[in-house]
Design a protein around this nucleic acid. Sequence first.
DNA 1: TTAAATAGGGATATTTATTGTCCTTAATAA
DNA 2: TTATTAAGGACAATAAATATCCCTATTTAA
Lengths: 162, 162
Amino acid sequence: MILKSQVEWALHCCAILAGLPDGRYLSTKALAEFHGLPKEYLSKALQSLSQAGLVHTTLGPSGGYRLAKSPAELSFLDIVEAVEGKTRTFVCNNIRANNPCRPQGYCESSPCAVARIMWEADEAWRERLRSVNLAQLTETLSQEIPSKLWKSSFEWVLDRAG
Amino acid sequence: MILKSQVEWALHCCAILAGLPDGRYLSTKALAEFHGLPKEYLSKALQSLSQAGLVHTTLGPSGGYRLAKSPAELSFLDIVEAVEGKTRTFVCNNIRANNPCRPQGYCESSPCAVARIMWEADEAWRERLRSVNLAQLTETLSQEIPSKLWKSSFEWVLDRAG
DNA sequence: TTAAATAGGGATATTTATTGTCCTTAATAA
DNA sequence: TTATTAAGGACAATAAATATCCCTATTTAA
């Protein structure tokens, strides 16, 4: 069980968009080139972000994407769920219903205990993702990335932002 | 990203094995029949448990599986990792390395910040799974399952345990 | 006004992972 | 000795992930 690589792509793209000045947009083409990703397929991930309302888009030359909210209001969970979906990572197929000892028409009152425990772990995962936002990420990145590279990347992006 | 159904199967099978008296074994055939699962494929999941050292096996008639440790010593994480593997659910492809602004030969000092955050969430998930053991599960099940069904299931299993 | 660039999305192909079946082998209990 | 078992290899079927291609409506810059 491994998350789609689109999750990684979306997170990195949002990190870039978080640094974009107000009113500017960055295209799929630029984001794909910056990260070395297939443009058409990355576009699907960005469409997911758009459908989830996390980014705003414009068409035409100088069009592209910008964040729909401030970086502090966008959590990792928002982005992960936009791309990966909100479905829990454990699916209960209720195999206890196949128990040959069950009386006819028996109906369980509550979800399977196994599933409940797995879902609690799933929720712990989501809670952790919910607790980190894009502002925190960019703060960390700005500290870790050499200022020269940080600066030149910023310029590279601004050169291409409409 | 959804866990294999084998994870669900393995958890339910371990719950049954947890109720098996000392020295008795239960076969793949019985476990498959009890849960309404394909015997040959369930066998693969049980083999994973065996390879991870969670269960002990014997061959021949009256052979099968029993837990290798006490239920209290077997966590959900043990079982999930035996079947699903220990690989983290987020794989970092280090796409930051494709940044066109990077100087030649540049080498990052630490793992990508995005990956670190995703891995912390993964660890939160595992920690939660680590905190629940089979003894707790069977305790819950014994409270929730009607005593009549609990009893008849127990007899069904003992009838088939070698 | 026109031409180029853009997001959105449908159709489809490719690759990988999951799910499932079949068969052989060695061990073992009855 | 015989039936039954776990282990595991080979392979098939199905589903999911990873793309690629192409068309459309929109918008902006020339």
